[in-house]
Design a protein around this nucleic acid. Structure first.
Lengths: 337, 337
DNA sequence: GACTGGCACTCGCTCCGGGGGAGTGCCAGT
DNA sequence: ACTGGCACTCCCCCGGAGCGAGTGCCAGTC
């Protein structure tokens, strides 16, 4: 059918353009893909597609390139999931299995993702908010100075140094420790915050109040929510010539963690890969970049987001497959820890 | 004197070239700097300088640009230390004073440095090797599973999960904890490693041996020695046109921490700023980049290196001043912690 | 009605040659 | 030792010509 072929043409154009980075013309299209029609027919189809807004020409009498809308259709309806090769799967497991702690997992994931997709990879650290308190530890640095260490179920560790108004003996410290742990250990962050806050506002609690306040602060410190690892920026070299219009704004965005978080968007349920194409994203300057993300976390609860950022002209099926595979694997690792 | 003026000419050329990014000619030079001689004289001087290898011409009948050797002379003998402005100093202190932990200090330093110099900033995390053990904490996750937390004097925290062959009661855990702390707390890493290693090889030590082994591994884990924070890569946009020959190799180098460490070189005594110009560095691909570094650490002991990386055509006095100032300030903060 | 072959046309890319200009090297003069 | 003058070099910019990939359209065929 005509309609089928038109879709096939759109798909072929996207694929060719992604691999050659050049506008694709009717003749080349017929040759490279086994379309059993003449270039003239394809031209008509392309004209129709352009009419509908899926394609454009950089200038009259040049080949066509997909528009954002064209990519959208491609991603939604035309791309078949590209399964990873065995070698790639093995690479993922061997690479990630060697990780020793959370930091290491995140760093390895970033590197892995950027290598698999040859794009810039972004991995958000698991959020505090939904994790639970595993343990609170106090270490006396001096009689009036205590190191407070907060250990969370995701494996994250936060630490603060606290100066107290009165010196604390070892026994008092131990008592304080068990008191705090009693109040917080095992609790989800939100609950721990509220019970500690009560303690922090109790004027009779003394040192306990001071420490509790610091803990509350550490727990609600959204700075750590915004922690992300970025890797593979060297891949931006393949972005094309337009350094100032495309690469520089992207590099800037990658450094601003707040901006980056917005770019990543809400963590979507693990398993569902989100694709944001060009102008669909929140930043005008990044109109020529796309973002492919998914959520991950233990028990497939989407505690954080991970994904890649690249030119709208990217290999969507491959990127989506890689992002999903890495997210799955990382989630499994977090399950074990 | 003739000789003095020739030096002045060299300095002027470096300064002008750095700010304009264009080969500088005799006429412009005389005008911009108050040299009381004619362009012809300057031309003679420049020819002499070129003869000696301090200057080159991109092509005959163009202005001169400094060679690496020219920059070297400039850095060694011609540049006056450019004191930071009051605003800059204040920026440093306000920016760094808000830091809550080691990670935060490092991250803020990177950002600060890149903003001050408008170059790529690199800050190495303080090495484990010369720091001391502040505390070892054990947290029971399950009867046979323990979270081991190692806290070092630099404020760094390492953690590992250990599976034991036999379950451990709370009392046993407490005993193990104090035993380990007795052996390691207060010791310099190297000493702690040797006493723990003895424990780890004692077949009668049971669980203690298992945990000790993990601790030894964590302490001698050089991975963390190579941890670095990088920032300001967007500044590479100002590197000029030669993306493939200059920017891409640099981006790649910045991602490979091992490479990066070599690029930073040995930590030099705090206060001494090291400048590596172009081909003086260890990598051919980075022939057009310079590195400005210095050591930092508590008590001005050079535990780690920080600095900036940029084109050979950079503002050396400004960069050196900024690097030194930030290193000093960070060292002071580490003293307090 | 869908497809095809043919044809005129468009328009970016590359190459080429000529002017303009910044800068140089050199030399004779002070 | 320095300067003014002058001829020369060579990059850079510009406009025009030629090329070629690709298009749109139209008349013709199944």
């Amino acid at each position: 059918m005509q309609e089928d072929r038109r879709l096939a043409v759109l798909r072929a154009i996207v694929e060719d353009y992604v691999s050659t980075e050049e506008p694709v013309g009717s003749k080349a299209l017929v040759e490279r893909h086994g379309l059993n029609v003449s270039p003239a027919t394809v031209r008509n189809d392309m004209a129709a597609r352009e009419e509908e807004g899926y394609l454009t020409q950089p200038h009259t009498s040049a080949g066509r390139i997909p528009t954002d809308k064209g990519y959208r259709l491609f991603v939604d309806r035309l791309s078949t999931v590209k399964p990873l090769s065995v070698a790639e799967k093995r690479a993922i497991s061997t690479f990630l299995d060697g990780a020793v702690d959370l930091d290491d997992v995140v760093q390895r994931s970033v590197r892995l993702l950027s290598q698999l997709t040859r794009q810039v990879a972004v991995v958000q650290y698991p959020t505090l908010s939904r994790s639970t308190v595993r343990h609170i530890e106090l270490v006396a640095l001096a009689p009036e100075r205590v190191l407070v260490v907060l250990i969370l179920s995701t494996g994250r560790v936060e630490q603060r140094v606290v100066d107290l108004s009165t010196p604390l003996s070892d026994e008092e410290l131990a008592r304080l420790r068990s008191r705090l742990n009693l109040a917080a250990t095992g609790e989800i962050i939100a609950d721990a915050v509220s019970s500690l806050r009560a303690l922090g506002e109790d004027p009779s609690a003394g040192s306990a109040a001071t420490v509790a306040k610091v803990l509350v602060e550490a727990m609600s410190d959204h700075r750590s929510d915004h922690r992300v690892a970025v890797g593979g920026t060297a891949n931006l070299a393949r972005f094309g010539d337009n350094f100032d219009t495309a690469v520089r704004p992207l590099l800037e965005a990658l450094e601003e963690h707040v901006v980056l978080m917005r770019l990543l968007g809400e963590a979507t349920a693990s398993g569902t890969v989100t694709v944001r194409i060009g102008a669909e994203g929140p930043y005008e300057e990044l109109a020529s970049t796309s973002v492919v993300t998914t959520g991950y976390g233990p028990q497939d609860e989407a505690l954080a987001t991970l994904g890649i950022v690249g030119p709208t002209r990217m290999d969507y099926p491959g990127s989506m497959a890689a992002v999903r595979a890495v997210a799955r694997y990382v989630s499994r690792i977090l399950d074990e820890a």
